[in-house]
Design a protein around this nucleic acid. Sequence first.
DNA 1: AGGAAGATCCGCT
DNA 2: GCGGATCTTCCTG
Length: 205
Amino acid sequence: MNVLAREFYRRDAVRLARALLGKIVVHETREGVVAGRIVETEAYRGPADRAAHSYGGRRTARNEVMYGPPGHAYVYFIYGMHWCLNVVAAETDVPEAVLLRALEPIEGIDVMRARRGVATRDEHLLRGPGNLCRALGVTREQNGHDFAASPLFIADASPIPASQIARTPRIGVDYAGADAARPWRFIIGASPSVSGKNLVRRVGK
DNA sequence: AGGAAGATCCGCT
DNA sequence: GCGGATCTTCCTG
C-alpha cells in the first residue's frame, strides 16, 4: 500500500478534492483496522470562500490547522453531535481544505457497524461526513494528524477517469451567497455510497 | 456573560 | 419533508 506523500496535497482545494476521489483512507484503531475508498468530497477555498471556516482570513483555535502545512487532518465538531474530517490543502498559510463526505467501506465492516449502532447496508456505513467519522473512529484526537503517517493515512490508487466523476454545489452551505452555487462537490457518480442525489453535470476534460 | 447558528443525522409523519 | 437532539465556537454587548 502506497501512502500519499506530502506533495500530493500541495494544490488548491478544488483540484485536491477531485484528485482524492478513489484514494483509500485507512485508520488503524484499537478495535481494528478500518478502511474505505473516497467517493465524495467538497472543496473549501480559504479567505475568499464564504462557506469556508477560514472566510475573510478568520483564524481561530478551531481552524488553526487549516493554516498549517498540507496533508494534515482538520477535524471539527458540528451540530452538537457530529465530527467532520477534512484534508488540509495548499501551501502553509493558505487555509484551504477538502471535506471527506463519503467512503465505500473496504475493511473493518464489523467494527464500523458496531460503532454506528444502526441497521444499514454495508455501502452506507461511511455515507455522510458525520457518519464517516463515527464509523472510522475519528474525533478531536485526530485533529492535526499527518495523513502521511500511521495510524491515520491515505493510500494511493488509480486516478478516476473524468467520465466517472460528477460535480454539484456543496451541501448545507445555502447561507454562503454566491459561493453556495459553486460546483465544488465531487462524487464518483456510480457509487452506492454517495449521499444525496448523484446526477448533475460531468466534469470536463 | 449570553446567545445564535452550524460544512448533520435519524426517525416519524 | 420536518423537526428534535445537542454543544462548540464565535460574535456581540
